[in-house]
């Protein structure tokens, strides 16, 4: 009885090791991580309102790569810094920047109306599009992009914890790469160029 149990356990370990090994080899040599069957899928359908009041959906983005970042305008540091860094990168990319899109999605639907976003976004490169929507619409895109956001009350106001990473998405709306908060400027530029010049 004991022997049988031990035998079964060893078989289970062997199968586990074999399976792990196969997956490791696959990830290293065969398939990009983002296309692995078990990988967390980032990206997906959404419909939001732009800072100029138009509706924009994921379908409208097909065919062009894009950078997408989540934040809110009542954010003193991360959001304006990221938008400024993107603006500087866009300037350095020059005309090449027109071959991709840049999206800033507000996770603060209560305060960030399209009108307010329009004023705020006017500080940055005109190629950056501000997006907002209803609570449901924002929750839906956050879910699709695995973006964490949570409203946190303060004494007389509230702030929002949120994912500070910029996602670089390919022509089919699939994730290709990311920009970390305060990525080195040269790395940021290289990643954006890679996205524009690449085929994904």
């Amino acid at each position: 009885m004991m022997k049988k149990l031990r035998y079964t356990a060893w078989v289970a370990v062997a199968v586990g090791v074999l399976l792990g090994g196969v997956l490791l080899v696959r990830s290293a040599f065969l398939t990009p991580l983002s296309e692995m069957p078990f990988a967390v899928k980032i990206g997906g359908p959404f419909t939001l309102t732009t800072h100029t009041g138009e509706r924009l959906s994921a379908k409208d983005l097909k065919g062009k790569p894009f950078a997408i970042f989540f934040g809110f305008t009542f954010c003193p540091e991360v959001c304006p810094t990221t938008l400024l860094e993107l603006t500087q990168a866009i300037e350095q990319l020059g005309a090449e920047a027109d071959k991709m899109r840049f999206l800033f999605v507000s996770v603060d639907h209560e305060r960030d109306t399209p009108d307010h976003l329009k004023t705020y976004i006017s500080n940055f490169d005109k190629r950056i599009v501000g997006l907002t929507g209803t609570a449901e619409e924002i929750a839906a895109i956050a879910k699709a992009y695995r973006v964490y956001f949570k409203k946190v009350p303060t004494e007389g106001s509230y702030t929002i914890d949120h994912t500070a990473t910029t996602y670089l998405m390919g022509r089919k709306g699939q994730m290709v790469s990311t920009l970390a908060y305060q990525e080195k400027p040269e790395t940021r530029l290289a990643k954006l160029r890679g996205l524009i010049r690449g085929t994904r």
Binding site: C75, T154, E155, S157, A164, Y181
Partner: peptide
């Protein structure tokens, strides 16, 4: 209108800001 004392951190790619009560 007002001023609060806050702490901000970026941990695991998430920006978190808290008022220090």
């Amino acid at each position: 209108a007002r001023v609060e004392v806050h702490e901000m951190k970026v941990v695991d790619e998430v920006m978190r800001m808290r008022q220090l009560p």
